[in-house]
């Protein structure tokens, strides 16, 4: 079976369940960046985020038969796996031990930001530099938030997930999502203003 970009995630999953690795590959292309951003925001590390993304997709692939499209979308299911994997990594003894013994900062990859969707023009150097400064200010403030607040806020503001989807990913109620996002906003505004 051929795979096309206009197929829905659900159609790709049906094909992947039938044994098409190529269709699962299309799902990988669609959701890698989002999964990476979620993992990166929790682990705070580029390398660990890459490991988490690989492991999460592998788990999703191996457990594809367990995926129930009536309960969640593939994206929310994948992000749930990604979040859990990231939390496991952060709380692992091995990781804490490594952090304790080596306090070095790993090299950040060259970050790129989405170009202005209205102009379709690539961003000029000055705008890129300004965005990088803005990114580091935001990144610093985001790191000071509790993981749940940070994840809820970023899933909403950067990934445009609905409150229902965020509730599914984080396995909490919609009213908890509302509170987490509100508290995250209040806190981050305070931190940036200081």
């Amino acid at each position: 079976m051929g795979c096309f970009e206009d197929l829905s995630d659900q159609e790709l999953i049906t094909a992947a369940k039938g044994g098409s690795d190529t269709c699962f590959g299309e799902l990988v292309d669609r959701h890698t960046t989002t999964a990476y951003r979620v993992a990166r925001s929790i682990t705070g590390s580029h390398e660990e985020a890459e490991d988490v993304v690989q492991e999460s997709f592998l788990r999703a692939f191996k457990n594809l038969d367990r995926f129930d499209g009536s309960k969640s979308t593939f994206k929310t299911w994948l992000l749930t796996i990604t979040r859990n994997q990231s939390i496991n990594i952060v709380s692992s003894f091995r990781r804490r031990a490594l952090k304790f013994f080596s306090d070095h900062e790993e090299g950040e990859p060259e970050l790129e930001f989405a170009s202005n969707p209205l102009s379709q023009e690539p961003l000029d150097a000055e705008t890129q530099l300004s965005l990088k400064r803005q990114y580091h200010t935001m990144d610093k403030a985001l790191k000071k938030l509790p993981e749940r607040q940070r994840t809820a806020l970023l899933l909403r503001s950067q990934e445009s997930l609905s409150y229902d989807e965020i509730a599914t990913v984080m396995d909490i109620s919609v009213s908890s999502v509302e509170s987490l996002i509100f508290r995250a906003r209040k806190k981050i505004i305070e931190l940036v203003e200081r």
Binding site: D21, F24, G25, V28, D29, T32, T33, Y36, R37, R40, E50, V53, Q54, F57, L58, F61, E110, L111, E112, F113, A114, L131, Q134, Y135, M138, D139, L153, L154, S157, Q158
Partner: peptide, 21 residues
């Protein structure tokens, strides 16, 4: 937050995932 949304410029991560799968 939308402006500073980092994007992965290359496809290397997606390719690594596909290779592992």
């Amino acid at each position: 937050l939308t402006n500073v949304k980092p994007s992965l410029s290359d496809l290397s991560l997606a390719n690594k995932v596909k290779a592992r799968i």
